[in-house]
């Protein structure tokens, strides 16, 4: 696969390390009543869709940025690549 890095342009996917569903950006609060349950869902029950998937990749052999990639898990087609920091900002809030 080729990942079109927003800063560096097209790069081979082998330069990156995959983490998983981008919902990992939404870390729950630690000090709420249902924190344990929230963390359980956050860590273990992630999206596993056959289709469009937002996911986190790390540019290990590159600029060390975390990217949010919108990719179809059936066709592997990539539709969007964003810096995780930008993506997070655009989510309108930081989850901490």
């Amino acid at each position: 696969m080729i990942i079109d890095h927003p800063l560096l342009g097209p790069r081979d996917a082998s330069e990156f390390i995959y983490l998983g569903d981008a919902s990992l950006l939404n870390r729950p609060k630690w000090d709420e009543e249902k924190s344990e349950d929230n963390f359980y869902k956050y860590l273990y029950l992630r999206e596993n869709v056959a289709g469009m998937h937002k996911e986190l990749w790390f540019h290990q052999q590159g600029d060390r940025s975390w990217l949010v990639i919108s990719r179809n898990t059936v066709t592997h087609e990539i539709f969007k690549v964003e810096l995780a920091t930008e993506f997070k900002k655009n989510m309108g809030k930081s989850n901490d």
Binding site: L19, L56, F58, W66, A84, T85, K88, S94, N95, D96
Partner: peptide, 11 residues
């Protein structure tokens, strides 16, 4: 650590 910084606490 980069994940913690960039993805959890970018601010």
């Amino acid at each position: 650590l980069e994940f913690c910084h960039q993805c959890l606490w970018p601010e």
